[in-house]
Design a protein around this nucleic acid. Structure first.
Length: 554
RNA sequence: GCGCCUGUAGCUCAGUUGGACAGAGCAGCGGCCUUCUAAGCCGCGAGCCGCAGGUUCGAAUCCUGCCAGGCGCGCCA
């Protein structure tokens, strides 16, 4: 409908120009939007304003000229008028959106989907938490955002791969090994201390206990490097298993778990540095190798190989992202915490230096999560051991509520997660409002079935009988879903979905109190059953995109 | 000091890329259950869109400068 109106306006402009009533070289882009105010019609066009700039005539006057040239009547359009300073408002027939209902029933679980991605291969890398501990709130937000973004891309016709990058190399693994070693020695009564920069969480004591159950004291007198390697391998496997389990409990599944260490082992890191050197972007200073990010407008250069010969995390990340492109991803999306934003520019610079178009890498920066309890901020550092894990959160508030909360704010917003509130308020969560609408629908359909009634096929009934404002408002909202999904996917902003879900649920609840589905006259029953079924499908599809369950009873 | 993010109703936040008089949910007040789930519906109040300039037909939205909060500016990741 929107496209139809746009085309009509283009025709009107062309016709007006031919008649010498408007002058322009090329029709500027204009917007058709749904006005906030009902009286302003169903769609409003700002075409007169954008033309006014070039034509140097009052917009109001131009709008009237354009309306005169519109190819009227347009099917489904009840009224066209010029309003305010020059808007062209289209008021549609009240029931213009009704044809969406048969389409919803036919498309079922794919209603809302599209193919705007045209099969583009996209990788979404998210969470990628250090495998030295469990997942905290920041990881949880990243998990929810990444998973829903991946869902959105799938639903818009992209070929999506979900990936977790395992940081199983580098300095923190060294510290991890030293920490584990200290705990191991302590378990045998030998004096040892976890390094200051190490991991002090109590979880390592338990990990070491399980290691000893399996391996006993045989590493007590082994060479320290061998001992640490055995401990690290054991602990990494255990931590990764726990991370994977927590993510699965959260409804997040990965296609690829990619090891950083493998990049070092395969020589990919070394090769990336060599290639950069060949292209003249590497120089030596103070015994270290530096990448010349300033050549790309960055503030300073970055070390890629330390004085001691060990490559930095940055070096591995360059190799990793090159590897992503080599695997054939046309577009690569990373979900990062805002504390990593300093890394964005230099990584893009390095990719540009290697000959890749840096715009193929998109970084979604999400602001950090602060966890409140008893009015105080809880620290989330793994080192201190006092942080709330994703698992604990799931026990407290459940998967559905947690996911909804994490994605209902735009990524740019800081998220203060009040644990006490989440604990005490579970029944006030907006997610229940939405789920309740779904359960109510299912209840109607269940009851209908018990009475021997089924949802008729749209051809059998006259959908034009749906005339109540509550019915028509609901139909219009249902018709919006494809645009909402496409918009959210384009913006990489899942919160469009939570907002839409709440609006849809609200309109359904209104419909529910004003219109009876089963008790009314028989002629209305059929169309209303179709409307209810279409609402169920739409609501369920949105919830599924969010990774939230659509309960049939509550 | 420099860079990024944020500042909108008492609270938590939307505001789809510059559109008409600023929106929702909580919280508050007042109504609605012999009929499909009251975890619901209806109504009411509440705002200098951080502050000050600028850009134009038009600004919460874009630009500049301030103010406040968060995060970064490692041979950590």
């Amino acid at each position: 409908m929107k496209r139809k109106l746009a085309r009509a306006l283009e025709e009107a402009a062309a016709s007006a120009r031919a008649a010498g009533e408007v002058a322009y070289d090329e029709l500027p882009t204009f917007v058709l939007e749904v006005p906030r105010e009902r009286e302003h019609g169903d769609f409003a066009a700002n075409i007169a304003f954008v033309l006014a700039r070039k034509a140097q005539r009052p917009p109001r006057e131009l709008a009237e000229v354009l309306v005169r040239h519109l190819p009227l009547p347009i099917k489904g359009v009840a009224r066209v008028n010029v309003a305010g300073p020059g808007f062209i408002n289209f008021t549609l027939e009240e029931n213009w959106a009704l044809p969406v209902l048969p389409a919803v029933l036919a498309e079922d679980q794919y209603y809302g989907w599209s193919n705007i991605g045209q099969g583009q291969k996209v990788q979404v890398e998210f969470v990628s938490a250090n495998p030295t501990g469990l997942l905290h709130m920041g990881n949880a937000r990243g998990a929810a955002l990444g998973d829903v973004i991946a869902n959105l891309l799938t639903a818009t016709g992209h070929e999506v791969t979900r990936e977790f990058y395992i940081n199983d190399a580098g300095n923190q693994i060294e510290n991890f090994g030293l920490s584990l070693e200290a705990r191991y020695l302590q378990a045998f009564g030998i004096e040892a201390e976890v390094p200051e920069e190490g991991y002090h969480g109590r979880d390592l004591i338990d990990t070491v206990k399980r290691f000893i159950e399996k391996e006993g004291d045989r590493y007590l007198h082994a060479a320290p490097s061998e001992r640490r390697k055995a401990l690290v391998d054991f602990a990494l496997r255990e931590k990764l298993t726990a991370i994977k389990k927590a993510l699965e409990d959260f409804g997040v599944y990965y296609d690829v778990w990619f090891s950083e260490r493998s990049l070092h082992d395969s020589g990919a890191v070394k090769k990336a540095i060599e290639d950069l050197k060949e292209r003249g972007y590497i120089y030596e200073k103070d015994g270290a190798l530096w990448f010349r990010s300033t050549a790309f407008g960055e503030e300073k250069d970055e070390v890629v190989v330390r004085q001691n010969g060990v490559p930095t995390y940055f070096a591995a990340d360059i190799a990793y992202h090159r590897n992503k492109f080599e695997r054939g991803f046309e577009r690569v999306i990373n979900i990062w915490g805002a504390d990593h934003h300093g890394h964005v520019g230099r990584l893009k610079s390095a990719l540009a230096a290697l000959g890749y178009d840096p715009s193929r890498l998109q970084i979604v920066l999400m602001q950090l999560v602060r966890l409140f309890q008893g009015g105080e901020i809880l620290r989330m550092s793994k080192r201190t051991g006092q942080y709330v894990t994703l698992e604990e959160l799931l026990e407290e508030v459940g998967r559905d509520a947690a996911r909804f909360f994490f994605v209902m704010l735009k990524p740019d917003s800081h998220l203060d997660f009040d644990l006490d509130l989440a604990r005490s308020q579970t029944s006030d969560n907006p997610v229940y409002y939405v789920q309740y609408a779904h359960a109510r629908i299912c209840s109607i359909l269940r009851l209908a079935k018990e009475r021997g009634l089924s949802v008729p096929s749209p051809q059998e009934v006259d959908l034009n009988l749906l005339k109540h404002p509550a019915e028509l408002a609901l139909v219009k909202k249902i018709a919006e879903l494809p645009e909402v999904v496409a918009g959210a996917a384009r913006a990489l902003e899942p919160h469009w979905l939570t907002r839409y879900a709440q609006e849809l649920a609200s309109l359904f609840h209104t419909f529910y109190t004003h219109c009876r589905v089963l008790a009314d006259e028989e002629t209305l029953r059929g169309p209303r059953l179709i409307l209810v079924e279409a609402t169920r499908i739409t609501l369920r599809n949105v919830l599924h995109l969010l990774g939230i369950s659509a309960p049939e009873r509550m």
